[in-house]
Design a protein around this nucleic acid. Sequence first.
DNA 1: TCCTGCTATGCAACTCGTTGCATAGCAAGT
DNA 2: ACTTGCTATGCAACGAGTTGCATAGCAGGA
Lengths: 193, 193
Amino acid sequence: MALEHAILVSLLEKPGSGYELARRFERSIGYFWTATHQQIYRVLKRMEVDGWVDVRDIPQQGRPDKKEYSVADLGRAALSSWLHDPIEPESVRHDLAVKIRGAAFDDPTALIREVERHRQAHQDRLAHYLAGEVRDFTGPGSPGASPAAPQAPLDAERELQHVVLRGGIAYERMMIDWLDDVLATLAGFGPSH
Amino acid sequence: MALEHAILVSLLEKPGSGYELARRFERSIGYFWTATHQQIYRVLKRMEVDGWVDVRDIPQQGRPDKKEYSVADLGRAALSSWLHDPIEPESVRHDLAVKIRGAAFDDPTALIREVERHRQAHQDRLAHYLAGEVRDFTGPGSPGASPAAPQAPLDAERELQHVVLRGGIAYERMMIDWLDDVLATLAGFGPSH
DNA sequence: TCCTGCTATGCAACTCGTTGCATAGCAAGT
DNA sequence: ACTTGCTATGCAACGAGTTGCATAGCAGGA
């Protein structure tokens, strides 16, 4: 299980409340690990009991109080130990691939709209990623860096976030290309024209 | 939930026992949908109760009897209805991406071996896919097809399996390229040399 | 002979993930 | 005045997935 680890990473990048975490899991880290607010609250509570995170009650005006969580030493240690543990090649769940194979036993052309919807979703996400890349990873510290600054361990966090984002971009591009391939294949069946 | 649908597709492609299904879920369809024998037996039993599949007891010699499942009309209908239902853009779980972002708060270079392991796993799977492609999707019926045969709806099953496999190939290639990018990024940190 | 490993099926316990619902104050639009 | 929507947290129930274990016969190697 790695939701707790994803939460630790997110809290290390920036402390925040369960609610804020839930929203990060709709963007950013959420593109690589999904979680609902329910899971997050439940796991945060357990992590608090286990001493992985510290809580601070923050009164707010005009809105409910929030509990700001930050990573405790025990949490850092737990993350470190997880990082040093090898993990298995992750398991995949592609509903769409199952549908495509299943379409052979139904009307293949009926899948076209569905595939087009997915293609659009990937296109949107790609645009989103690219915008984020321009926003967060161009400018100061990126191209050649200032000649004086050593740059080496300077911003590991930033560079690692960037390489993960590049992975997301590559993934979306591949999906769009593949879905085009799927559409071309589906178009080869039943002359709906 | 779609395990039942994945099972229906697999049984339509070829009837078989729970055990055989479990092994298919380690190869072939399993690259797009994972399941253990436990899940499969449990779900198969429910599908039998619901009348989605038919069972035939097949005595064997030298080994235990097996129950061969095949898809019943109700199952076909259930699959068809699922195929016509739109599904959400699938949720992803990339442990490795979480690890990479987490490495910023630990020793990034310690991840290199892990990433190399994953790269190797993807390389192996790619080789496996490519071998399967040559084996199953070259030769009779593929390149231009015989001029006499209409070919259009002739082998939808085969063509759809092929396009899914091409997706797997594209995915593995993308991952290998991305992991190279990750390795290059990690190598930019801590001079372990 | 014993141990390992394969086919073949299954139970029980547990954890993880999902869905529906509930509370509660404030802001902003109709 | 009413409704919608946002921040913020949480319970309860259920369904899905994982892990450990059990049975049972046969094949093959040490």
